[in-house]
Design a protein around this nucleic acid. Structure first.
Lengths: 208, 208
DNA sequence: AGCTACTATAGAACGTGTTTCAGTTTTCGA
DNA sequence: TCGAAAACTGAAACACGTTCTATAGTAGCT
């Protein structure tokens, strides 16, 4: 009968005006915290819906009312973490004289973050890549966050070309993330390939 | 007790010396054919192990003896299709004066192939991206096939730099495949982004 | 305070990937 | 040709994502 049976609008990714009552915002936070904790401990397969519900102290049905699938749950968690990371990036100026240097800086930072919590990285990467069309909004939000991250590393006001380059870098980054997660590439391989990619893309550009 | 209970060695991806008896090779082929057919008709979710087994006329247990998971099954199927496509590419010379032109040719071709069978594309892309470490060998084989495809489009004997560029293109291609599959990007978006990427990477290179 | 609509809960139930098992058939070396 | 080892079969069982149901709580309106 009801048009929507979700306690929050589908956008649900921007930090802005969180909808719902305080209790609902709290439940939502508990759910995402539980998700991250479980993912961090045991990766994608450890994020079991029953376990998340129990850890967040909500019923299984409630969990599904907040997040329609495990994929939505994990991708939303990824978006939250990325937003936090991006805020931290915004506050501190990225060191480096050239776009090339600054992009490498940022890449180094995210690569270290990835290594710091392999299970979490695995869970989120696989959820992101496995998502189907029903999670397109969430996935897209994450994609834009990544593009933005690299674009801002180049210039405060990225041009069209900056955005195009940032997107390519994000694509390569994702691909390498997947390779690292499946153990087809070491962290060193990833670092090398990223550096090579950035060199190919930014070889002559050196504006500040 | 037995060390290996698989009818074929784990490599299983190169066309070379298919192992096993004729009956085994035939079963294997029937299984992959059934997989492709189901994927083509209904995508990832339609590739149900029981359905594959029935369509291939083998017992469920036998299916699992040949392919240890749905992911292995689909990624192996993808590898087979890619090999076939690559053979076709090898036989016909790719038109185009410059590496830039030829890479765009190849990209246009695979993009059309992707559009021709959306369900199959969806099934294989998602399997490829969702794979975990246990399918690393299969996934890696597919990755190398894609790199090779783009590298050969540039030069018959790709240099190190050609290979690096090819890898970046393959990464961007994959990323766009995922975006297309989740309906975050149209085929046109994909074509545009690929062209832009290739332009960024090959802007001054024009050797034949 | 009482009514109504919405939200949360506990738990059963269902679907599909995966595993297991007992029994049969096939393969292959002696 | 015989017998053991390996492969195949059919069916049951299990795990986890997802859905459903019956009941209980809760918030807002009058």
């Amino acid at each position: 009968m009801t048009a929507t049976n979700r306690p929050r609008a589908a956008n649900g990714l921007l930090t802005e005006d969180e909808p719902g009552s305080a209790a609902q915002r709290d439940r939502r936070k508990r759910i995402l915290d539980a998700t991250i904790a479980l993912a961090s401990k045991g990766g994608f397969e450890a994020v079991q819906m029953r376990a998340v519900a129990e850890k967040a102290d909500v019923a299984l049905g409630t969990l599904y009312r907040y997040f329609p699938s495990k994929i939505h749950l994990l991708v939303t968690g990824l978006a939250r973490e990325l937003e936090r990371g991006l805020e931290r990036l915004d506050r501190a100026t990225i060191p480096g004289e050239t776009p090339y240097d600054r992009v490498l800086q940022v890449l180094g930072r995210v690569t270290r973050a990835m290594q710091r919590d392999p299970h979490l990285t695995e869970a989120m990467t696989r959820a992101f890549m496995f998502a189907d069309a029903s999670a397109a909004a969430e996935v897209d939000a994450v994609g834009r966050l990544m593009d933005r991250m690299f674009a801002y590393a180049m210039h405060d006001e990225p041009t069209e070309e900056d955005m195009a380059i940032a997107r390519v870098i994000a694509d390569v980054w994702l691909s390498n993330l997947v390779a690292w997660v499946t153990r087809r590439a070491t962290a060193n391989d990833v670092a090398e390939r990223l550096e090579l990619t950035v060199r190919l893309l930014l070889r002559k550009d050196s504006r500040t």
